[in-house]
Amino acid sequence: MSLIDDFLARWHEYRRPGYYEEFDYHWTMTVDLDRCTGCEACVTACQAENNTPIVGEDAIARGRHMQWMRIERYWEGEYPDVKLRAIPMFCQHCDAAPCETVCPVSATYHNQDGLNAQIYNRCIGTRSCAVYCPYEVRYFNYNNHHWDEPLDQQLNPDVSVREKGVMEKCTFCIQRIRQAKDAAKDDGRRRVQDGEVQPACVQTCPTEALVFGDRKDPDSAVSQMLGNERAYTVLEELNTDPSVVYLKKVDADAA
């Protein structure tokens, strides 16, 4: 009987969504759309930090751009009363991530910090996660990428270069989180403090539209942002429970 009990216990454990009932940290990013200008500094910052490849004109024409951070543009109205709404779009690190359930080899999974992790060397390239992700933020390596020498010297040694056949996406700059955690540990402190870790996009955003931090810390900047009444999540109706929270753009002329 103990075998069955054991099995049931494991099964119960296994059935818990996201494996982790409680996260060590709950990394969260807020995007203030009222600040964001769509300047795309974050796009380049991410590309520089995460070794996302230069794919070339033909590849982009074939819909194979690889930037993990992209700015979506939506126009509203007609000339002259026309408005552009820009929104940074990248992995939302959903706590109920559809991409995670579908991966047959658990190459993408939820980690103990609430991140949607992507394990490149486990990925077999079924691309199902990209189908299941409603935010279209997963990018597949349709081929190996090449950096004309000596451009390869700029590659970030803390981030692997992905090979063909592998899926990739925004990691919340997990290498920076790791380093912050290591540093906190080395300092003999128990936790990473607010502001000690900033993903590349957050770091560079000229308008300070992006704020990153631990939601479990009620005093963190990001927790304060979450309390703002403009906070919402994109495609909320899908119940993906994203860790990226947007702050509504303000229309000064709305009633």
């Binding site: 074939r62 691309r127 990209a130 279209e136 597949f140 349709y142 081929n143």
Partner: peptide, 15 residues
């Protein structure tokens, strides 16, 4: 040898 890029799939039509 080349990668799945030999096929026509792209973002968002990964299948």
């Amino acid at each position: 040898y080349y990668g799945i890029g030999a096929a026509g799939m792209n973002h968002p039509t990964v299948w």
